[in-house]
């Protein structure tokens, strides 16, 4: 069998490499060294990962200090969403910004966390939060309405600063 297989790399190996045992000892000492290194494991429920500002977690709607959302229901996010996860219905108000979303729904089963909604938003009204713990036990719960999406701006300042620095 070995007659048909061309022998490769014969020249590259020195005598000590060819007898194999010293190389095994090298490999074993390497793993032994690693055994005494500290581990990188984050023990999740107790220790939680604190994402950097560039992290794209669950998309949320920005709520100003006065409790009103920034969104003007232009529908661009819904339009750009590649997974068709966002549904917006506009309504009219007496406020300075005349439009607001009567209904704003993100289907979290569809969302792929691409961040295009955030990128396209002219009002900086929808941003990606740092929330990565997204749990629901049935399909109806996966539709996140305004109650779950509206997030006070104080919590999102990190991401907004990041966007102002790097977006566009």
């Amino acid at each position: 069998m070995s007659g048909t297989v061309p022998k490769k790399r014969l020249k590259d190996l020195s005598f000590w490499q060819k007898i194999y045992v010293p190389e095994i000892i090298k490999g074993l000492s390497q793993t032994l060294k690693q055994m005494f290194q500290p581990s990188f494991t984050m023990e999740y429920p107790e220790v939680k990962f604190d994402p950097p500002a560039s992290y794209r977690g669950r998309p949320v709607l920005v709520q100003e200090e006065n409790g009103i959302e920034r969104c003007v229901a232009c529908g661009l996010c819904s339009r750009v969403c590649p997974a068709l996860a966002i549904e917006v219905q506009a309504g009219e108000t007496e406020r300075e910004k005349e439009r607001y979303p009567e209904k704003f729904e993100i289907n979290m089963l569809r969302c792929i966390f691409c961040g295009l909604c955030e990128e396209v938003c002219p009002e900086e009204a929808i941003v990606m939060s740092k929330d990565y713990e997204i749990v629901f036990t049935n399909r109806a719960d996966a539709l996140y309405g305004k109650d779950k999406l509206l997030t006070p701006i104080a919590k999102l300042q990190d991401r907004i600063n990041f966007l102002r620095q790097y977006k566009g």
């Binding site: 690693q34 055994m35 290194q37 581990s39 494991t41 023990e43």
Partner: peptide
């Protein structure tokens, strides 16, 4: 456990 230690993990705990 030993596989975890060699790979800088924690292993079953």
């Amino acid at each position: 456990k030993i596989s975890a230690w060699t790979q800088n993990r924690v292993g079953p705990n």
